[in-house]
Design a protein around this nucleic acid. Sequence first.
DNA 1: TAGTTAAATCAAAAAAAATTGATTTATTTT
DNA 2: AAAATAAATCAATTTTTTTTGATTTAACTA
Lengths: 108, 108
Amino acid sequence: MDNIIPLKDTSLDETFSKYEAKFKALADQKRLHILNLLCKQESTCVCDLSELIEMPQSKLSYHLKILLDAGLILKETKGTWSYYRINQEEINHLLSPELCCLFRPSCC
Amino acid sequence: MDNIIPLKDTSLDETFSKYEAKFKALADQKRLHILNLLCKQESTCVCDLSELIEMPQSKLSYHLKILLDAGLILKETKGTWSYYRINQEEINHLLSPELCCLFRPSCC
DNA sequence: TAGTTAAATCAAAAAAAATTGATTTATTTT
DNA sequence: AAAATAAATCAATTTTTTTTGATTTAACTA
């Protein structure tokens, strides 16, 4: 019968760890810019986004993966193309209504 | 007559830059833990916090400075002591009501 | 006043994250 | 089928952030 009285609050640690990943994903100008563009675009493929944001493809893919892993965006693959869009629900759970406006189409 | 039609939206860049700093401050487990503790503590000096969180003083001061520079906490100095407390207003502007609960005393 | 304590800062080292250009895999087009 | 395109991944490098322990400055305390 171990761990009846845990020495530390593990669930709180896990909570912090979870949000750390999400805030890390948000903690970058380029990624905030990507999120802002994805808002206005419905669903966009990497090559179009790459032109829009003026960023080389491999670099963009790197940043998209970080946003995807954090659950802030969603991906749908059609053939060779990957279409990304914002995960509005997740953004809404995370950010203030006021801030959501930066990352929500036709709000405010 | 320069810059009548700016090539880029500078104000949006500035906005992203501002939030980048704030999210960077939030993008760390230890700092989230500090914020959570400061919520429950009213106002706390570094030495007490250092014991609570089991973190050496210089390391704690480093992280407190990051939170302070981002405007997420406030500092008041009394003699040799520095008392830190959460900047509730700023947190509320930034995070969802649901998330604010993690960093707000007696909420939820 | 001398000794102690609080907390910020510093410089060096370690760790983590970002950038770059090339490669790979799969798909589409000609 | 061959050439071209989309996008993920990789390895090497660069940049940024964090950690560590020591030092400094100021203010308490005995």
